[in-house]
Amino acid sequence: MAILTYREAVARGIAQEMERDESVVLIGEDVAGAGGVFKTTTGLLERFGPERVIDTPISEQAILGAAMGAAMTGMRPIAEIMFSDFFAVCWDLVVNEMAKTRYMTNGQVTIPLVVKSGNGGSLRFGAQHSQSIENWAMAVPGIKVVAPSTPEDVVGLMAAAVRSDDPVLFFEHKGLYSSKGEVPDGPILDELGTAKVRRSGKDATVVALGLMVSRALAAAEQLAERGIDCEVIDMRSLVPLDAATVLESLGRTGRLFTVEENPRMLGWGAELVAIAGDDGFWDLDGPVVRITTPHIPLASADSLEDLMIPSVDRIRDEIEQAMKG
């Protein structure tokens, strides 16, 4: 067992897979010599050499295209898009190419690749370097989407993503890079499409993702002192979506809350709430509540950003209010 930071866990996960499989290679801007702008790939160049860990030009389309073409022809590339906001300049490759080529070719082409990217806010980077774009990704059939919240999950889900034969967008939360957690020794392999119950509770089901998981857990502790016992689920993966775990929990608690960093409209929680309406309706004892960032771009000032992204206090208060009805 070791205590690793989230960013160290990213490098550990990639190294584990590169060690295991020669077809795993890494490309991106500043990922090799500099070890990544977020230092998530430190040491990989030294360990695996310049043929497998490659610094690219600032060419997001070329990066994703290279990853896709290589994946179609026998490799398992990992590509980095530095900030998830930059997917906007190469979204064609994701949405039109990676997501659809297998389908359009009637299964002739397999695209086993991972695009890792720093996602989310809380670092005061302003509206173009703070977005939570996981909901863009989950809107496109053909792309798998994961967003781990702990170092251990980072390693295991990175391994699962690399071994997946489908294209996977791997969202690292920038606000979690310096967070720490225990990671078991030895190889770790997790499973895509599985949520995890982080805290058991009997009164309400609170579903969160990424940075929101730790905040939801902190809110749950405070709510417990006020007599509300929350079950907190870390969604971890949006595509596939582990609706079963959420519905099962809802069946026991009767109440559903989502805690989402993405802007409100069509956030991942909206889909989950719709599923609860379809398949969990008779379990619901009260309104479902989505606690989200408002439908606005994020401001850079710390005071404003903190007001917009769900905080522990806001999560606690909104749940308490709804539960007391």
Binding site: Q61, G65, G69, M72, T73, D92, Q108, V109
Partner: peptide, 29 residues
């Protein structure tokens, strides 16, 4: 989108430009 992997035809692409970058990937591989 004509494609026949067994003949080396790795695809026909209809969004202008994308496939130049994808061809790079196959060449890299």
């Amino acid at each position: 989108h004509l494609t026949s992997v067994e003949h080396g035809v790795m695809g026909s692409y209809a969004i202008i430009g994308a496939h130049l970058t994808i061809a790079n990937g196959a060449a890299w591989s």
